Amino acid sequence: MSQHSVHNPFSQFRKPFTVDEVLAAPPITYPLTLPMCAPLSDGAAAAILCTEEGLRRMGADRSRCIRVAASVMRSFSHRSIDQPQQGAAHLAARQAYEQAGIGPDDVGVAEVHDASATGEIIQVENLGFVPFGEGGAAAERGEFTLGGRLPVNPSGGLESKGHPLGATGLGQLFELTTQLRGEAGGRQVPGVRHAIQENGGGLLGIEEAAVAVTILSR
């Protein structure tokens, strides 16, 4: 979301767009215009994962440590277009919620793969934030913006933050870790205890070839 990226110093594009500007931009493929598609970006990301014993050995500041509550990967599913509930991302999300012992209502912030603007609408439905078919209307109501019911892509998302391909998923987790630490500045979502990430890659049939869903908790 371009309105979110203005608060992210690591974002590739920090200019907010109005709806009229987006619709008037050069077309890519109907109905997508240029600002509705992610750029290819340079970038890198890294994460340090360790056990409780590892934390003790490193003498880490435990107040800044974030727990991986769930991590699920799934391959694409053989489904028809009218079976969204059988999609890989939705099944991975259900499995992740079960692992973490929480549900969609417990999530305070999300980072999802929005290589195009439709991606965010599809994934908020897959993650169970709204019923299938209602993602677009909820987005129009502002439910997924900062200050809304459940902020999505406070980093600016792939379209504004950038899409460095191999580093994209860890970039999402960096944003969620920053949110859970309360260090996100002007884009901070208050009181976050659980955060979810969805990232997909490739295309087989009508969905991603592979999907990862991760839940982080304080």
Rank of each mutant, 00 (worst) to 15 (best):
L55D: 01
R56T: 07
R56K: 05
R57E: 13
R57L: 10
R57N: 12
M58V: 06
G59M: 07
G59W: 05
R62P: 01
R62Q: 01
S63V: 02
S63K: 04
R64I: 06
R64V: 08
R64S: 06
C65H: 00
C65V: 03
R67H: 01
R67F: 01
R67I: 00
V68T: 01
A69Q: 01
A69S: 03
A69F: 02
S71N: 04
V72N: 09
V72I: 13
M73R: 07
M73K: 10
R74M: 10
R74T: 06
R74S: 03
S75R: 14
S75E: 14
S75G: 14
S75A: 15
F76V: 11
F76H: 04
F76Q: 03
H78S: 10
R79Q: 11
R79K: 11
R79M: 09
R79E: 04
R79S: 08
S80F: 15
S80G: 14
S80T: 15
S80V: 15
I81W: 11
I81C: 12
I81F: 10
D82R: 15
D82E: 15
Q83E: 11
Q83I: 11
Q83G: 04
P84K: 04
P84M: 06
P84R: 05
Q85P: 04
Q85H: 10
Q85L: 09
Q86T: 13
G87V: 01
A88V: 06
A88Q: 04
A88G: 07
A88S: 10
A89E: 07
H90T: 09
L91D: 06
A92V: 05
A93S: 13
R94E: 12
R94V: 12
R94T: 13
R94P: 06
Q95V: 13
Q95T: 14
